[in-house]
Design a protein around this nucleic acid. Sequence first.
DNA 1: TTGTAGGCGTTATCAG
DNA 2: CTGATAACGCCTACAA
Lengths: 337, 337
Amino acid sequence: VSSATVSHVLNGTRYVAKETDARVRQAMDELRYEVNSVAQSLKLNRSRMLGLIVSDIANPFFTALVRGVDDVARSRGYTLILCNSELDPEQELRYLRLLRQKRADGMVLASTGVYHRYYDQLIEGGCPLVCVDQAIAGLACDAVLLDNEAGAYDAVTHLIRLGHRRIGIVGGAPVVATSGERLAGYRRALREHNLAEDLELVREGNSRMNGGYDRTLELVDLPRPPSAIFTTNNLTTLGAMAALRRRGLRVPDDVAVVGFDDFEWTEFFQPRLTTVAQPTDEFGRSAGELLIARIEHGMADKPKRVVLSPRLIVRESCGAGSLADSSDLERIFAQSE
Amino acid sequence: VSSATVSHVLNGTRYVAKETDARVRQAMDELRYEVNSVAQSLKLNRSRMLGLIVSDIANPFFTALVRGVDDVARSRGYTLILCNSELDPEQELRYLRLLRQKRADGMVLASTGVYHRYYDQLIEGGCPLVCVDQAIAGLACDAVLLDNEAGAYDAVTHLIRLGHRRIGIVGGAPVVATSGERLAGYRRALREHNLAEDLELVREGNSRMNGGYDRTLELVDLPRPPSAIFTTNNLTTLGAMAALRRRGLRVPDDVAVVGFDDFEWTEFFQPRLTTVAQPTDEFGRSAGELLIARIEHGMADKPKRVVLSPRLIVRESCGAGSLADSSDLERIFAQSE
DNA sequence: TTGTAGGCGTTATCAG
DNA sequence: CTGATAACGCCTACAA
């Protein structure tokens, strides 16, 4: 029996006599044969592997993203190679090269946002690439984004409606595009409600806990501290909470807090955070689908851009008063299993 | 210039005239050449890819594990393929097959714990395999484990010292080996302190939030409810917290809680949980190192077993009274950046 | 209904 | 100092 026949048995790609088929399968069983995907990839020039580059696998935002991409990848017969750039553009670049060398069929990139000409080379080289969370300036590729400006606007408007007039903002890393968009939303909310922007209330962090911590300390130590703080990403929010605790300030009694990015588990602890929630699963799923569409239907048509909408989830941390507790618990458990 | 020369330029594996070397490199630049790892893998019979199978990428325990494995993998020149079994043995099996077909050089397996003969085939087939979190009964492979019994013993002993006499336990899925070990630790603690075990205080969950929720409701709705609850994994703990909130019970005033598995962010919210913390990063790192050692030095010597020690972190949720707040904040930020 | 042979992009051996 | 060639395991067009 020839290797051709084996291949056809394996893939059901042409008729094989029942008897031969049986013999081949039996041999496979006895020899514990496993097809060699590496050879397949070489021959067929596709690996059925997708690269996914995130900047922090421990961050729940990216965790949910991974899950979303993984879901659709798996269901379409692809496998994920997960890469952790640690918010380092160099690292990100190394991973892009690596994925290209390993002949990943495409990649999802939650970029650090720093442009590099290698991105263009990828696109020119016909490598399917989908950006999530933030686009890369001047790069013509598919992207799944959030309407960050609107999310921030909603958050700050909510605080204003609650009566706050001095609202501080602790931003993420300035280099990250989303930080700027969220700051813009903050500014528009103030403007549209006729509040003057006080520059000493605007602080730029680094999208990490320690940035949120330090900048928040600065805010609350001001001669005229803000009565509310808007933190523009999840680690920053955690840092801010730590800073407030450090100063003995209670939330929301002493300072109201609204964060960007939701935490699932925040439901169970006090204060429950009011947040601008991103549809993280959908993020991942959209990115996965866009990518696979590119891979399977070519790079011909022009780049697509999906913009998702955030949703303000009001809980106690902004001082809105307690919600009916049990309402959303049921929802959570409906999801969790 | 022949392909052989190119290969040697690429790998620095034999002397190439300066002039030739330069020409080759220039051509590579112009042609945007990227070496094809797939072909390398086929030829060299190794892929420099490691498989990592976890049961829930969204669970912080596994997140930290991934990070640990990834750290050592990267530093040794390997790339991770991350697989999510969703706590489903079938899924896990499919992934093992897939990884084998993709010719992963080895795999780290955070197994669901259900034995399958394919595991043995892997070992016999000489596939480097390291189990983490739980070993698979009767399987002779490297493993990185936790002393679960001791951790549970410490947790329950702590509660007893605080004066609790009716201590409930909400376990994980019974099929998971660690659940049993933690239950054993609970029992020994009671025994050694001359407390009779009350079977109605012992509940088996499913290692998920909803299990923790349901079983905790059962406990607190008892005619003689426990004054303290020990929850034996992190999602179970979250479910328990939700149940307590649902019943309007305060922690630790009405019920003391000690959980297994730490959450980093729990520092910032109330109640701060007392937990049995696992050295998760070390888990991943050990597993990665064990695996790479196997890959590079062969399967000859007998299986190694690394047993790590858990550490009880006392915070308010068990009613020990508030600790000095700021002490560990500094520590956390030292880590976070 | 099955077999033969060429080639995917590398590396390694052996010859120049 | 460099090149020709075989081989890794698979798929597929063509032949039988």
